[in-house]
């Protein structure tokens, strides 16, 4: 099982602890990650795409070409990169006219999109290629008693005909993967609400994030479990902003799925970069009997 990982800007530069978690947990799953040279920003499906869709599509196609040249499927671990690369792949497959136009542009840099690879979100690789049994078998230290409030984020699931990850209305993939590490996933009242990060307003995202965190507070979870670095930004650093804005303390630790998997595989909290989070994860580490330093 060889793949070309596409970490993207947010994970590589801002939240490298998620890259570390993916790199350190995949070997035990039998996945080989082959680092390729020359990837750029996916590019960003919000602001860059809002500038010019044709240029957005062209730069995305350039990234796809790099994986094609290596003969490897791309795996994504950022929901934004997934949105861009999966949609670009879909457009280039469905619209021969646009594919030709993109290829005319790519010729300037000696590339040509042929359509020989796929784009997969890493959670689907765990489910469909590695298999849930094998993920469970990699666990040496189950995270017993840990209660995780799952938050899906939008771009992992929608549009479902392009993402093909799970049912966008009643997804289970993150709950299923969370059970495998020995933890107990819980559904909170706003589990499918957008984090609001992509909206150009201060007020709306703050209210959305507040309502999601209040939903989580009601289910007594030890932490929030998610898979999107943009949601993470909104919920980790975001809770500091929210506490100031609403004059009350928001303090729910936020964990990326592969960090949980790493802990369950016996890796240390430090290996998983959990000390880099703004909202301290000490309570859950204490519950698990793990070092907090």
């Amino acid at each position: 099982m060889r793949y070309a990982p596409f970490y993207g800007c947010m994970i590589s530069l801002k939240y490298p602890q998620f890259e570390a978690a993916v790199r350190k947990t995949c070997p035990a799953l039998g996945m080989e990650l082959v680092d390729l040279e020359g990837f750029s920003c996916c590019p960003d499906p919000i602001y860059f795409k809002a500038g010019d869709k044709m240029i957005w599509l062209t730069l995305a196609a350039r990234n796809l070409c790099i994986a094609e040249e290596a003969g490897l499927d791309i795996i994504t671990m950022c929901s934004g990169c997934t949105a861009t690369l999966s949609e670009a792949h879909h457009i280039l497959e469905e619209d021969p006219g646009l594919r030709d136009e993109v290829n005319i542009r790519l010729k300037k840099v000696g590339k040509e999109y042929k359509g020989e690879i796929s784009v997969r979100h890493i959670v689907t690789v765990l489910r469909d290629d590695v298999g849930l049994e094998k993920v469970a078998a990699s666990v040496t230290r189950p995270l017993d008693d840990l209660v995780v409030a799952i938050h899906y984020g939008c771009h992992l699931l929608k549009p479902s005909k392009i993402m093909r990850v799970d049912d966008p209305n009643q997804p289970t993939i993150l709950e299923d993967l969370t059970r495998l590490v020995g933890a107990t996933p819980v559904v909170h009242s706003e589990n499918l609400l957008c984090c609001g990060k992509a909206c150009i307003s201060d007020e709306m995202p703050a209210e959305m994030t507040r309502d999601i965190l209040d939903g989580i507070a009601q289910v007594n979870a030890d932490c929030m479990g998610l898979i999107c670095p943009t949601c993470f930004d909104e919920f980790d650093l975001g809770q500091l902003r929210l506490s100031r804005r609403f004059h009350r303390k928001f303090n729910i630790p936020v964990v990326y799925y592969f960090q949980l998997l790493g802990l369950a595989q016996g890796l240390s909290p430090r290996d998983m970069g959990l000390h880099m989070h703004k909202i301290k994860v000490h309570p859950l580490l204490e519950k698990l009997g793990l070092p907090t330093a």
């Binding site: 499906p45 919000i46 939008c154 771009h155 929608k158 549009p159 479902s160 966008p168 957008c194 609001g196 990060k197 992509a198 909206c199 150009i200 307003s201 709306m204 995202p205 959305m208």
Partner: peptide
């Protein structure tokens, strides 16, 4: 238009 959160639910 700038208030759109880009969640793709409408697409769905």
């Amino acid at each position: 238009i700038w208030l759109c959160t880009n969640c793709y639910t409408c697409y769905e």
